[in-house]
Design a protein around this nucleic acid. Structure first.
Lengths: 339, 339
DNA sequence: GTGAAAGCGCTAACAG
DNA sequence: CTGTTAGCGCTTTCAC
C-alpha cells in the first residue's frame, strides 16, 4: 500500500502537490499533474481514507440507520436504501446501512469521532429517542419519516395523510361507504410509536368521522394467519363493510383468503387496497392487488440530497418534503385473464 | 468533543495512561484508573474512532457487501445481515451493509486505507470478480456462498446439494416420480452466474437422471405472472408432473395459481415445495407453503465468527461450513382449517 | 505503574 | 504554481 509520500518521491514533487492533484484542491500544471498521476499508477496508490478523514475531519461516508430489532426489511425499506446509496454515490459520498439499537444507545461511539459525516434515520417513531441523541452529538442528520413534532427537523416522508385521503376518495368514488383499516400490531414492541401507523390510523379515523362513513380499525398479527384474523375481526365489527385498506404486506394474502372464507368476493363484494406498499409486493398477488405505491426511490434520493446539501453547505433551508403514495389499480396493467 | 489529551490533563496523568485505561492495554493502578474514568465521565469523552484507526490500523468495523444491482433484499438476505451484525456486535465489532458494484470496481477506495478490517461477501457468483479484487487488496474476507472453486477460500454456505437431495427424497417418499424445478431467470443480468441457482439446477438434473426420475427445469420471470408462466411451461413440458420445487419467493403464489388454473389441486394433485426460503415467506401463503428453510441466522453468525477469528488470529484454519435447509411442511405447524 | 515521544498518512495554511 | 510544516487524536515502544 503505497503512501502519498512515496508517490511524491517517485514523481519528484512534494507531498502537498500530490494531495492537490488527488483532491483537485489547487491548480497544478498539466505537466506535473501527469507525472504525479503516472507515479500513482505505477505505485497503485489508493489513498488512505482514514488518514484523510483524520486530517480533514470528513469521511464522505454517510450512514443510514436501521433498527437492530423490530421492523423487518421491507421492499420499500430496500428502495430507500438502494436509492439513497445511489444518489450518495453520484454526489461523491458512500452510504452504508448501519444496524443500531432503536433506543440510540450505541450511537455515540459510532458517530462521534467523525466516522461518518452525517446520518439518515429511517423507521422513525413519533417520539424517536435517536433524534435527541443525534442532536446532542451534533451530527448532521435527516429523517426519512417524521417525529410528532418535526417542524425544526430536516425530513422527507411519505405523506400518509394525503395517501389515506386519496385512498378513501378513490374508494368512495367507487361507491364504498363502509371501510376497514388493517394495521400491524406493534404495541409493546420496540417499534411501538411507529409514526406511519399512527398517522394513517388517526387520519383514517378523523376522515371517516368527518364524512359520516363507517370505519373499523383492526390490528393484525403476522403473516397469512394475521390477515385471516383481521378479515374475521373486520367483518365481525362491521358485516356490511365493503372496502379495506391494508398497511401490512405480509398479511395482505391472508386478508384476501379470510374475506373469501367469509363469503366475500374480491373485488365484487369487497375492495381491497394495499397502502404504502411496493410494486414487487403487489405483483406477488393474483389478481394483482390494487396498491398505493410508496415513493421509495424518490424519497431515498431526496433524503440523500437533503443530508448532503446540509453537509456541503449547498443549501441553507430545512427540507420538509412530503410525497403521497400513488394509486396503481389491479386492472391498469395486469394482463391477467379472469380466473 | 473532548480529546484524550484533555482527559489526561483533567486527571493529571499523561495521555498514554488514558490510552491504557481506555483500551485495557496495560495495568494501571485502581487509583489512577478511577481518576481517569472520572475525568472521562466529566468531559463526556467518547474517543475518536478515526484517530484510533489511523494509529492502530484497525477500526473494528467489518462490511457486508451487497450488490448495488441485481438481487433484491430477500428475507434470507436480511437474516444474514441481522445475525451477522448481532454476532459482530457481541464480539466487539460493528457490521455495516455496504452497497458495492457487483463487479467489485469501487471496492478499492472503500476497503483500502483500512476503513474496514475485513469484509463478508454475499450473493456470490460462481466466478465472482470481487474475490480477485479482495485478494489483490489483501483484505481479509469470508464468503456467504461459494465460488466455483472455493477450496482455498473461507466460506459458509447453504448446502444446496444436500438440500435438493433432501427435497427430492422427501417428495419421493410421498410417491412422486415426476418433478419440476422453478428458478429465476437471471441470464444476462448482473447476477448471472449466481451460485445457488447453478448448484441447485445441476444437482437437480444429476439427481433425477441418476434415479430415473422425470425432471423439468423452467426459468420464471418476476412476480405472480412469472409463477403462472412457470406453471404453464412446466405442465406443457410434462403434463404428468406431480411435484415442483420452487426457488423463487415472489413467484410461488403465482405458481400455485397457475397450477390451479391448469386444473391441478395443491397438494392433492401436485406437491409444491419452496426451496431455500424463509418462514416469513412461507407464512404469507395459505395454506402455508411447505418450505426448505434457509439457515440464514446460523450462517450469518458463522460468517461473522469466521471473519472475526481471521482478524483476531483466534483460529488458523479455513472455515468451510455448509448447512442444508430444513424441511418445514405446511401441516406441521399450520393451525389453518381446510379451506 | 507512568510518561515522553515518535509516528500513523494525509490536509491545509502559509511561504516563497 | 509548488514546497514546508504544523497538526488531526490516538497507539505504542522505550525509558524512568
Amino acid at each position: 500500500m503505497a503512501t502519498m509520500q512515496q508517490v511524491a518521491d517517485r514523481a519528484g514533487v512534494s507531498i502537498a502537490t500530490v494531495s492537490f492533484v488527488v483532491n483537485g484542491t489547487k491548480y497544478v500544471t498539466p505537466a506535473t499533474t501527469d507525472r504525479v498521476k503516472a507515479a500513482m499508477r505505477e505505485l497503485k496508490f489508493r489513498g488512505n481514507v482514514v488518514a484523510r478523514a483524520l486530517a480533514s475531519r470528513r469521511t464522505r461516508i454517510i450512514a443510514l440507520l436501521f433498527p437492530t430489532t423490530g421492523n423487518r426489511f421491507s421492499p420499500t425499506t430496500s428502495e430507500f436504501f438502494m436509492s439513497a446509496a445511489q444518489r450518495a454515490s453520484e454526489r461523491g459520498y458512500h452510504l452504508v446501512l448501519w444496524p443500531v439499537d432503536p433506543a440510540g444507545d450505541d450511537l455515540d461511539d459510532l458517530v462521534s469521532g467523525g466516522l461518518v459525516d452525517g446520518v439518515i434515520l429511517m423507521e422513525v417513531r413519533m417520539d424517536d429517542p435517536r433524534v435527541a441523541v443525534l442532536t446532542d452529538l451534533e451530527v448532521p442528520f435527516t429523517l426519512i419519516g417524521r417525529t410528532r413534532d418535526s417542524a425544526g427537523l430536516p425530513f422527507v416522508d411519505i405523506d400518509f395523510e394525503t395517501t389515506i385521503v386519496d385512498s378513501v376518495d378513490h374508494l368512495t368514488a367507487l361507491g364504498h361507504r363502509r371501510f376497514g383499516l388493517v394495521l400491524e400490531d406493534i404495541e409493546g414492541t420496540p417499534m411501538a410509536g411507529y409514526a406511519p401507523h399512527l398517522r394513517a390510523e388517526s387520519t383514517f379515523r378523523e376522515l371517516v368521522a368527518e364524512r359520516g362513513l363507517a370505519g373499523t380499525v383492526v390490528y393484525a398479527g403476522a403473516g397469512s394467519e394475521g390477515g385471516r384474523g383481521a378479515a374475521e375481526a373486520l367483518l365481525t365489527a362491521d358485516p356490511e363493510l365493503s372496502a379495506v385498506l391494508v398497511m401490512k404486506d405480509d398479511s395482505a394474502g391472508g386478508l384476501l383468503v379470510g374475506l373469501f372464507d367469509a363469503g366475500r368476493r374480491v373485488p365484487e363484494d369487497v375492495s381491497v387496497l394495499s397502502i404504502a406498499s411496493s410494486a414487487a409486493n403487489a405483483d406477488q398477488h393474483y389478481p394483482r392487488l390494487s396498491t398505493m405505491l410508496a415513493p421509495g426511490r424518490e424519497l431515498g434520493t431526496r433524503a440523500a440530497d437533503a443530508l448532503i446539501e446540509q453537509l456541503d453547505g449547498t443549501s441553507a433551508d430545512l427540507p420538509h418534503f412530503l410525497l403521497p403514495c400513488t394509486l396503481r389499480t389491479a386492472e391498469s396493467t395486469a394482463a391477467a385473464p379472469a380466473r
